[in-house]
């Protein structure tokens, strides 16, 4: 067992939260750049080829000029993985205060769009901080004394949906739901393909929605679920999504999805809850690991779905 005499300082949390948000807003992860390059190489439609080329140019310009890669800078949020032996100076109340402050600061410094408003009055605090904003979700990891935070700036309002199926609906029901969801969002700019599709399968309704979001945002493009049955479904859904032909911007093209990730949770014997989330082509996330001694490492792979996180038995 790892034990630590150190407490992670809030100054390190502050720096990590700020920089992870800057990286998320500005830098397209390498896996996404590669996926766009591959899509451009495969593409047969001239308009889609042109747009994919522009997307790659935009990604370069964003980094060169430290500009947000998209004008809709999304809703900043945090996924936090806490080592079981980690301790934070000021505790998690202090940690969350630094996360909220980092969002306010980066919103001003990068001139990010102030997206968060009161849902009824539409009052805008101007800094993307408000009631339950930014959202902060937690998971845990054994034998570790670090804390990791992943900043995610997922854009858009539409393209995410939920449906309760019966077991007899099976794979066909899941495919039908995916087609319905893609069709209702890809045509007129409600989603921004090529997307990374997350499918949450099973659990309860709220778990299905949550895991669909995590599958869209926190897996690595091109990876597979360790369960071979789930991995096979991922491949089938990926093929189906791209056979729709919506393509980039929905103007027609060969790549509608850069990847389809499925996460499962054990569910009620009577049903299959299924949810779909789509991460837009501004694929914005970045991870920072804060070590017990205050050192910070930044990386692109969130490493969110660890074997422990997906554990099946009691241990």
């Amino acid at each position: 067992m790892v034990t630590s005499a150190h407490r992670i300082g809030l100054d390190a949390v502050s720096r990590a939260a700020y920089e992870a948000n800057r990286l998320a807003a500005v830098v397209l992860p390498g896996e996404a750049t590669n996926a766009f390059r591959d899509a451009l190489e495969r593409e047969s439609k001239p308009m889609a080829q042109y747009v994919l080329g522009q997307i790659l140019e935009n990604a370069d310009l964003a980094v060169a000029e430290n500009r947000p890669m998209c004008g809709d800078t999304g809703l900043p949020r945090f996924y936090v993985k806490v080592g079981n032996e980690a301790a934070i100076e000021g505790g998690f109340v202090g940690f969350e205060r630094e996360c909220r402050r980092a969002v306010a600061d980066i919103t001003q410094d990068l001139q990010m769009r102030a997206n968060r408003v009161h849902p009824l009055t539409r009052q805008n605090p101007g800094n993307n901080v408000g009631v339950f904003a930014p959202s902060i979700d937690y998971s845990f990891e054994p034998d570790a004394d670090w804390v990791e935070l992943t900043a995610v700036h997922k854009g858009g309002l539409f393209g995410s949906d939920y449906r309760m199926l019966f077991p007899a609906d099976g794979i066909d029901g899941i495919k039908r739901f995916l087609l319905d969801t893609l069709s209702s969002s890809a045509r007129r700019g409600l989603s921004c393909p090529p997307v990374v599709v997350g499918v949450g399968l099973g659990g309860t309704k709220d778990q299905a929605v949550r895991f669909s979001k995590e599958a869209a945002c926190l897996r690595v493009i091109g990876d597979s679920h360790p369960d071979p049955d789930v991995a096979k479904l991922e491949d089938e859904l990926m093929e189906l999504a791209n056979r729709t032909g919506f393509g980039v911007m929905g103007v027609g093209g060969d790549t509608t999805a850069l990847d389809v990730n499925v996460e499962i949770a054990y569910t009620h014997t009577g049903g299959i809850p299924v949810a779909v989330s789509q991460f837009c082509l501004a694929y914005r996330r970045a991870t920072a690991r804060i070590h017990a001694d205050g050192a910070i490492e930044y990386r692109e792979d969130p490493r969110w779905f660890t074997p422990y996180y997906r554990r099946e038995g009691i241990e």
Partner: peptide, 29 residues
């Protein structure tokens, strides 16, 4: 286009001439 050529489009903003109704509508609207 793109959708998400935000940096390219942002660079083409030569200047902000003025912002009207920020108090009434909030900075984004």
């Amino acid at each position: 286009m793109g959708y998400g050529l935000g940096a390219i489009y942002g660079k083409s903003v030569k200047r902000v001439i003025d912002v009207h109704w920020p108090e009434e509508l909030g900075i984004s609207e």
